[in-house]
Design a protein around this nucleic acid. Structure first.
Length: 229
DNA sequence: CGGCTTTCCGACTGCATAAG
DNA sequence: CTTATGCAGTCGGAAAGCCG
């Protein structure tokens, strides 16, 4: 296995110091303030903030590079190589909790090479979303129940649309040139509408989900400071 | 089937906070 | 102050998947 887990003395310990923002702690004023400046003690502008996330261009680059799938080790590396704290154990936890898609097993040629799990490239984006929500004080349970439920559905719509565009384009080559030009125009229109739809659904579901999680959180054992968000 | 690698499961740890 | 609760992260071992 990969580095199996590091010695506990290294990991467990500095909890509190090394561990990132403890999401289950509700984001009280002090935390919010800290998150804003923080990026942290002794940190200068160029160092990695405690709540650092991947940028959109990073996400696109990763999704392009690993379009055919990405291994667990590579996923963890995408974050750690950019100085973002994300352990393999946390990755497993997220998968276990249903926050991330399961892998598919792919055997490798050669003697005693075993098999390896391959995750869809979008997993990296998903992790980024999860980390962002956790930094906002949402618990894994809330994220799982309220956000990703919708995310899965919206992503499903986007994936089905992408599949549809591909198939239509493939089949369109059989048409005569005039008909194909006409269809290409309509397809481009439909494509734009589809993109807009997906973006709009994403926006709507975020708005629907947020208030529900707020009420969940207010009902929880430790309320407070929700109105900050 | 045996050997190997990787993934998953569930118990556990340690921290923060609330309640008594 | 002590105890209870909730949480994210960690660990050990079993299971899964593949190859020869």
């Amino acid at each position: 296995m990969f580095t199996r887990f590091r010695d506990r003395s290294e990991d467990a310990l500095p909890t509190g110091t090394v561990v990132p923002f403890r999401a289950h702690r509700r984001p009280v004023l002090a935390d919010v303030a800290r998150r804003n400046d923080d990026d942290a003690p002794g940190a200068n502008a160029s160092s990695t903030p405690r709540f650092a996330l991947l940028k959109e261009e990073d996400l696109r680059a990763v999704e392009g590079t690993y379009a055919d799938g990405i291994s667990a080790v590579q996923i963890v590396d995408v974050f750690t190589s950019r100085g973002i704290k994300f352990s393999e154990a946390s990755f497993r936890k997220y998968v276990q909790q249903g926050l991330l898609p399961r892998s598919r097993r792919v055997g490798r040629k050669g003697k005693h090479r075993g098999s390896m799990g391959v995750y869809p490239a979008k997993t990296v984006r998903r992790i980024n979303t999860v980390k962002s929500l956790m930094a906002d004080g949402y618990t894994i349970e809330e994220i799982q129940g309220e956000f990703l439920h919708y995310t899965d559905l919206v992503e499903g719509v986007a994936e089905h649309l992408a599949e549809l565009w591909t198939r239509i384009s493939t089949d369109a080559v059989r048409l005569d040139p005039k008909a194909k030009r006409e269809l290409d125009r309509e397809l481009a229109d439909a494509h734009r509408d589809g993109d807009r739809l997906v973006a709009r659904l994403g926006d709507i579901t975020r708005r629907v989900a947020a208030p529900r999680t707020d009420s969940l959180r207010l009902a929880g054992a430790a309320g407070g400071a929700e109105d900050l968000l």
